[in-house]
Design a protein around this nucleic acid. Structure first.
Length: 294
DNA sequence: AAAACTCGCAACCGCTAGCTC
DNA sequence: TGAGCTAGCGGTTGCGAGTTT
């Protein structure tokens, strides 16, 4: 429970006391949307007053950016988005806003929540500090391939069925209240391309090497391995480094980030089978890692 | 059936960089 | 130049929904 109250310099004491906090109502949302539609964003404190909202400018800004803005995407992150987050976080750390810039329609808040609830949870599960180099390595060894597998599954299923039945459809409809933004599943978002995975295949080193291509072809089987503790005791080894150029993901047609080429995912080639306590004590809980709810 | 617990996410807070005057 | 203000960032919290006991 918060007990401290810090005055906002844009409000006198009486106004400040009257400020509303907590969940937004539909009425407030409508007020904000209507005002911004007519007058645009910015000057949030005065905007809040002019719109007749008993909210701080901060609160209005947050509500707009995180929820009401027309291009805001709702619902679960796609595998591609998750891959991007993992990779970009390994580069930039908790620079949520910077990471969010590369995921059109996603907010820093959403990404931050994803990281805290999914990724850090997994780190705790593995008893590894989520900010450690080792955790990043484990992500790249086990999680990345799994996500790539999901990309493959999604693209293959989308080629045989319409998006409406896909789990990628998200549970956005249960979210409330706010404008429902039509959301296109990532893998079927670009009709000019057969599928993302095929596009990646044609242009990245990952799929260029014969053993990596073999790995791709074996993804379903491999995922079973990942999910199976016994996998860690098997003699299977992956000796190739694979590289995935993320810039080849067409992020909902919003264009390519300018600094995202040549991002490398690497499957390490050493010591991951006999990888000490990690391998012996635990394994990646892919059901938890995988964000889509059953 | 209901109490206890867990989880995910929206919204809040404090801090600070950058802008204006 | 520095004070005041705003926008934006990252960390934290509280609530509601779902799950377990």
């Amino acid at each position: 429970m918060r007990t401290t109250k810090k005055m906002n310099t844009s409000f006198n004491e009486e106004e400040f006391d009257q400020l509303k906090r907590g969940p937004w109502t539909l009425e407030e949302d409508n007020l904000l949307i209507r005002y911004i539609t007519c007058h645009g964003e910015g000057r949030w404190n005065s905007l809040a007053k002019s719109a007749g909202l008993k909210r701080t400018g901060k609160s209005c800004r947050l509500r707009w950016l995180n929820y009401l803005k027309p291009d805001t995407k709702r619902g679960n992150l796609t595998p591609q988005e998750q891959i991007l987050i993992l990779e970009l976080h390994s580069k930039w750390g908790n620079r949520w806003s910077k990471i969010a810039q590369h995921l059109p329609g996603r907010t820093d808040n959403e990404i931050k929540n994803y990281w805290r609830t999914r990724v850090q949870k997994q780190a705790r599960h593995l008893k590894i500090d989520s900010s450690s180099k080792r955790f990043v390595e484990e992500l790249q060894r086990f999680w990345m391939p799994r996500l790539l597998e999901k990309v493959e599954q999604t693209s293959s299923s989308s080629s045989t069925s319409t998006a409406s039945t896909s789990t990628m459809e998200t549970d956005q409809n249960k979210l409330s209240p706010g404008p429902q933004i039509e959301q296109t599943p990532f893998a079927v978002s670009s009709p000019t391309r057969p599928s993302n995975i095929e596009h990646i295949n044609s242009s990245s080193n990952f799929f260029a090497s014969s053993s990596s291509a073999k790995m791709l072809s074996q993804l379903p089987e491999m995922s079973q391995f990942y999910a199976d503790t016994a996998f860690y005791n098997s003699s299977l080894q992956i000796n190739d480094t694979y590289n995935l150029d993320i810039s080849e993901f067409d992020m909902m047609g919003f264009g390519q980030p300018d600094d995202m080429s040549n991002l490398n995912f690497q499957v390490a080639d050493t010591d991951w089978i006999s990888g000490g306590d990690l391998a012996a004590d635990t394994y990646w809980n892919m059901d938890e890692l995988w964000q889509f709810k059953k």
